[in-house]
């Protein structure tokens, strides 16, 4: 690939109110979308605000809208998303914009907590370690959901979040499902109550935008369906 070639990169500038600013960014071999953003900040405009950390798809902090699709920018090759030599990069959907490409993650993590995302231990450090058998159905469900790194790509992809601000969202509910299936956790009914309110799991329309866009290939829709079944069983038994 020639070093002379360049991309037209449109980057969101401003907060909620703002506009796209276009930069000519030199193309390079194996270039990622995060490389484009870094090039703009380091060579064209040092005031550009964006967030990243690990650059290898582990931390979940560099998620942005790339050509209208939520993605980890560090793991997205430009060659796969550029359209006619242009790339549009915007802050994550469904979250308040602080500045440029940096969003306020508070609503995302507030909902994560509201959905009962904190582990509630049943043993103390004085107890013996409980053996966890990986092949049990509960552990398989927990393991399927546990790889979430809270990048908020699913939250940005979710149309229910965009129209129902109270909705807890796929990541928070997926986390709740992993704990519902954790035999070491002791807050089952409190967690099922937390996901059964006005913004709870029952508001999911199963459109599966979260499944389509999760970079870790998790299935939050299946987790939410599991929560729906678990909450109905608990309600029928009068536990919630």
């Amino acid at each position: 690939m020639s070093d002379d070639a360049s991309l037209k990169v449109s980057v969101w500038r401003g907060a909620e109110a703002g506009s796209f600013e276009t930069f000519d960014v030199p193309m390079q071999e194996s270039q990622t979308v995060l490389d484009l953003v870094a090039w703009v900040q380091q060579n064209a405009d040092p005031t550009l605000a964006y967030r990243y950390a690990c650059r290898v798809g582990m931390c979940g902090s560099c998620a942005m809208m790339v050509n209208g699709v939520p993605r980890w920018t560090c793991r997205t090759h430009v060659s796969k998303v550029a359209k006619d030599g242009t790339v549009e990069i915007a802050p994550l959907r469904n979250l308040p914009v602080i500045k440029d490409l940096a969003v306020d993650m508070d609503p995302f993590f507030d909902k994560w907590t509201a959905a009962g995302g904190a582990f509630s231990p049943t043993k103390s450090r004085d107890d013996t370690v409980e053996p966890i058998l990986p092949e049990t159905p509960e552990r398989r469900e927990a393991d399927a959901a546990i790889e979430c790194i809270n990048c908020a790509v699913c939250y940005a992809a979710c149309d229910v979040v965009s129209v129902n601000p109270d909705y807890l969202g796929p990541a928070a509910l997926n986390r709740a499902w992993s704990l519902v299936n954790d035999v070491k956790d002791g807050a089952l009914d409190a967690r099922l109550t937390a996901v059964s309110g006005a913004g709870g799991c029952h508001n999911c329309h199963s459109q599966q935008g979260c499944v389509a866009h999760c970079p870790n290939e998790l299935n939050p829709t299946a987790s939410i369906a599991g929560l729906k079944r678990a909450t109905v069983r608990a309600a029928l038994k009068g536990r919630i």
Binding site: N164, D166, S196, G197, A198, G199, G200, H202, N203, K228, T231, V232, A235, L236, I240
Partner: peptide, 12 residues
């Protein structure tokens, strides 16, 4: 806006 009881009622 749909809690567990409205959800159950709609399925029922």
């Amino acid at each position: 806006m749909i809690g567990v009881r409205l959800y159950m009622l709609q399925r029922l």
